[in-house]
Structure formats: structure tokens, C-alpha cells
């Protein structure tokens, strides 16, 4: 039983790897063919533009909650003016990107899986093939590209609102000096921190789109099959976001440690 499970798991992983490979090839090809730009553009509208409000709300709450929660800890040893560093570092480096990505996994991932899954069970994907078009090129590539390109921007929106939310609660609600708040923030948050958060967005976006499209393409028959595919897509996306976040944290730390000592020389 466990052996067959393990074999099935590996088989799925192998299939997923092949799907990702074909998606990457198709995406690269799409970038070079202007005929597919309208498709990418349409997906960017659906995926990106309509996600802005929800991502901004997520960011704002993250900033505000951090301010409320961290204030007491810092105030206990009289360091409440450093609140800005703590909030802004957390927002731009970790919580903004990860929570925005999770939000997107739910919003976009769910919609992508349901859409492609329905197309699969109503034979629309077979229909695309039967007319001599590659469904990976026609359906997957524009979605992956749209997600990959727009998630970093959405993360910037989340960061922005997180910073503003944190500022309002800290300065207006908790009465921290505005100048001190920004001075400490500016000295503590480097461009590097913001960049890491945004770069993560490319990986998160690509992972969400690839997983969701794959789950849609391999969806089982019926309404139940589509529902199940959506659930699996969200869970897989969520875990991948956390795993990627960990891997990238290790990777960027190594880079940072390598280049930090010579920074002074540059």
C-alpha cells in the first residue's frame, strides 16, 4: 500500500516536472511571438488588476497588526521608537510577500484550477488539441507569464499598504514620534530587503500558476473532480510558497553573507 502510494507520488511528481518543463518552453516561445500578447494581456487583467484591492487590504492589516503586537514588547525595554524597523522589515521581507502570495493562491489559483478543470471535464482541452493547437501554449503559458510578471507588483502594493498601515497605527494610535519612526525605519531597512521580497514574487507567482494549471489539466471527472482539484491546488500552492520561502531565505542569506564583507569596498 505505502509502496504503491510512493510510486504514485513519484509518478505524479515526474508528470508535474514534465508539465513544468513544457510550460516553461511554451512561455519562452510566447514571449517571442507577438500574436500571443493579447492572451497574456487578458490574463494580466484578470489575474493582476482584479487582485490589487484584496492584496492591498491584506498588506494593510499585516502592518497594523504587527504594530499593535510588537509595541508592548519593545516598550517593555523602552525601545518603542524602533517599532518602524521591526514592522517594515517584517512586512517587506517576509509577511508582505508570503501573505500576498497565499492570498493570490486562493484567489487566482482557485479560479485557474476551476476554469481549466471545467475545460478539461467538458472536453474543451481535447477540443483545442483536436484543432491542432497546443493547450499548454494556448492556456498555460499566458497564465504562467501573467502570474509571474504581476505577483512582484502585487507584492509591492502589499508592502506599500503594510508600511502605511503600520505607520498609522504606530504614529496615530500608539503616539510614536513620526520623525523617529521614519529615521529608524530608514536606517534599518535596506533596499536589499525590499528587493528580496519582490524577487520572491516571481517564484511564488510561477509556482501558483504552474501548480494550479497542472491540477486543472489533470482534473478528474465531474463537479466533484473539479472541487477536489481546487482544494489540492490550494494546498499544494500554499506548501510550495512556504517551502520556496525557506529555500530562498537560505539562498539569499548565503549571497548576503558573501557580499556583505566587500560592500564597504564598493
Amino acid at each position: 500500500m505505502t509502496v504503491t502510494n510512493a510510486i504514485n507520488g513519484l509518478d505524479n511528481l515526474g508528470q508535474f516536472a514534465r508539465f513544468v518543463f513544457r510550460s516553461i518552453a511554451a512561455s519562452v516561445e510566447s514571449c517571442r511571438k507577438s500574436a500571443t500578447y493579447p492572451l497574456i494581456w487578458a490574463q494580466m487583467n484578470i489575474i493582476g488588476v482584479h487582485s490589487v484591492p484584496i492584496v492591498m487590504v491584506t498588506g494593510a492589516f499585516v502592518g497594523m497588526i504587527l504594530a499593535i503586537q510588537a509595541y508592548d514588547q519593545l516598550a517593555a525595554f523602552g525601545a518603542e521608537e524602533h517599532l518602524g524597523v521591526l514592522i517594515n522589515i517584517s512586512v517587506v521581507k517576509e509577511l508582505g510577500p508570503v501573505l500576498a502570495a497565499v492570498m493570490l493562491a486562493g484567489r487566482i489559483g482557485g479560479a485557474l484550477t476551476a476554469e481549466l478543470g471545467t475545460m478539461k471535464v467538458t472536453e474543451q482541452i481535447d477540443a483545442i488539441k483536436s484543432m491542432g493547437t497546443d493547450p499548454v501554449k494556448y492556456l498555460v503559458a499566458p497564465r504562467v507569464l501573467a502570474c509571474l510578471l504581476l505577483t512582484p507588483f502585487l507584492i509591492i502594493f502589499a508592502d506599500l499598504l503594510g508600511i502605511i498601515g503600520g505607520y498609522f497605527v504606530s504614529v496615530i494610535h500608539l503616539g510614536i514620534n513620526s520623525r523617529a519612526y521614519w529615521t529608524f525605519s530608514a536606517s534599518g531597512v535596506e533596499l536589499w530587503d525590499v528587493a528580496i521580497g519582490v524577487i520572491k514574487g516571481f517564484f511564488f507567482g510561477a509556482a501558483i500558476a504552474a501548480i494550479s494549471c497542472y491540477k486543472g489539466f489533470t482534473c478528474k471527472e465531474g463537479a466533484h473532480g473539479v472541487g477536489q482539484a481546487c482544494t489540492e491546488a490550494f494546498v499544494a500552492s500554499f506548501i510550495s510558497i512556504l517551502a520556496l520561502d525557506f529555500a530562498l531565505a537560505v539562498f539569499f542569506k548565503a549571497i548576503y553573507n558573501t557580499f556583505w564583507p566587500i560592500k564597504a569596498l564598493i
Binding site: T122, E123, Q124, K129, S130, M131, G132, T133, D134
Partner: peptide, 30 residues
């Protein structure tokens, strides 16, 4: 295969029309 398939027409059991686009767009799709 996609080259080969342009020689065929396939009528699916349930039609398999693309439901996000109009009849006209469905027909000009291929």
C-alpha cells in the same frame, strides 16, 4: 501531432464549445 491534427475535424459528444467566447469566435478559433 498538431500538424497532423489540422487534417481532421472532431465533433465532441458534448460539443466542447469554448464557453467564454461567442459562437462566431468559436468557429474562427481553428
Amino acid at each position: 501531432l498538431n500538424q497532423v491534427r489540422t487534417r481532421y475535424g472532431f465533433l465532441f459528444q458534448g460539443g466542447a464549445l469554448f464557453d467564454s467566447i461567442s459562437v462566431f469566435e468559436n468557429i474562427i478559433f481553428p
